[in-house]
Simulated assay, not measured.
Amino acid sequence: MRKSIFKYMLIICVGACAAFNASAQGKEETDLKNWPKGSSPKEIGKKVAELFVVTPHPNFGRTTPPARITYPEICAWYGSLTFAKASKDKELTKKLAVRFEPLFGKEDTLVPLPDHVDHTVFGAVPFELYMQTKEPRYLAMGKHFADKQWGPPEGFRVKPESHVYHAKGLTWQTRMWIDDMFMITAVQSQAYRATGNKVYIERAAREMVVYLDSLQKPNGLFYHAPDVPFYWSRGNGWMAVGMAELLRSLPKDNPNRERIMQGYKTMMASLLKYQAPNGTWRQLIDGEDSWNETSGTGMFAFAMITGVKEGWLSDPAYKAAARKAWLGLVSYLNEKGEITEVCEGTNKKNDRQYYLDRKRITGDMHGQAPVLWCATALLR
């Protein structure tokens, strides 16, 4: 009799321990606050941001300096600043402001002209500096870029369709390229955050809806171009981050919010399906024979982390995927704080092998920036 009771109690204890361990493991898999040693957002973000501070202005991998600040650097600068704010690192903000200072003087020729989406996104950086320092000159510079984007078409980049888009209330810089939905929404969202003027965020939302209605596929993803039927990772990443950044600040009563949220959630559901076992996403999202690519991974991770933190993605599967994505992403960082396996700058081509054969580079700002965005999102 005693043996039977003992055996019964042992079974109960074993079952209870198993249930406890499963519960603990489940919590760990969805934990976005506690991280293994060396992988915390604060530690990683600091390392990557400090590397950015001392890195010369990059020029798409060329050895010569750029004629203008390039958009990958802008993205990393913005990420470094938002990380400084989220981590309450005022010393880092000062260093990033010092890096910017020559653009008001001896290096002013490096400031891009607001005549193209890849150039106008520059405005996101002075807006962030203004919000953290309250220096009016940053605000004036940021507004110049945001306002020119919706001003009348001007400059040698103007095309006949520029006037058509402008007449419809869109930016004359509209191209219907998926990259645009980060480049445009980033500066306009920042303008709204810095000024409180809803005009900026409302026009960005209208623009986003046009792109979603025109370019998003039923599965939520985007071809690299209408004539290039491939789901290239970084191209899709721009859309994912653009929607997340816009929704983060878009007022809840905005008439376009529901449509954008629908597009965002449809995309996130598809990305959940295609996440690789190590937490990353591939160069071609739906290609299991494709290599794990880090710039797209960082962008998707940011969009998903933001959705979880904001309460848009309530299914625990997203929380688990977000944690897995961050740990997968940082596993590609080297000792210097450089991310590896970044796809080189890529034009469109209707050739699947072209995407599989793209060079994989290390430390490129296309990859550094999303690491910083993710660290920021996790700390918010």
Rank of each mutant, 00 (worst) to 15 (best):
F145Q: 02
F145S: 00
K148S: 12
Q149W: 04
P153H: 14
P153L: 10
G155W: 01
F156N: 01
R157A: 01
V158I: 12
E161G: 00
E161W: 14
E161T: 06
H166C: 00
H166W: 08
G169T: 06
L170H: 14
T171C: 06
T171F: 12
T171L: 08
T174K: 03
R175Y: 07
W177S: 03
I178T: 12
D179L: 01
D179Y: 11
D180M: 02
F182I: 02
F182Q: 09
M183K: 04
I184F: 13
T185R: 03
A186I: 07
Q188P: 06
S189N: 11
Q190A: 12
Q190S: 12
A191G: 09
R193N: 07
A194H: 09
T195L: 06
I201P: 02
E202R: 05
R203Y: 10
E207M: 12
V209N: 05
V210T: 08
Y211H: 12
D213A: 11
S214A: 13
S214R: 15
L215M: 14
Q216I: 02
P218Y: 15
P218T: 13
L221W: 01
Y223Q: 03
Y223E: 09
D227L: 06
V228N: 02
F230Y: 15
W232V: 08
S233W: 09
S233E: 10
S233A: 14
R234Y: 10
G235E: 07
N236W: 10
W238P: 02
W238N: 03
W238H: 13
A240I: 05
G242A: 07
M243R: 03
M243G: 02
M243A: 10
M243T: 03
M243F: 12
A244F: 13
A244L: 08
L247K: 05
R248S: 12
L250N: 06
P251K: 00
P251R: 03
D253M: 08
P255E: 12
R257Q: 11
R257N: 04
R259Y: 09
I260G: 05
M261A: 08
G263Y: 11
T266V: 12
T266K: 14
M268H: 01
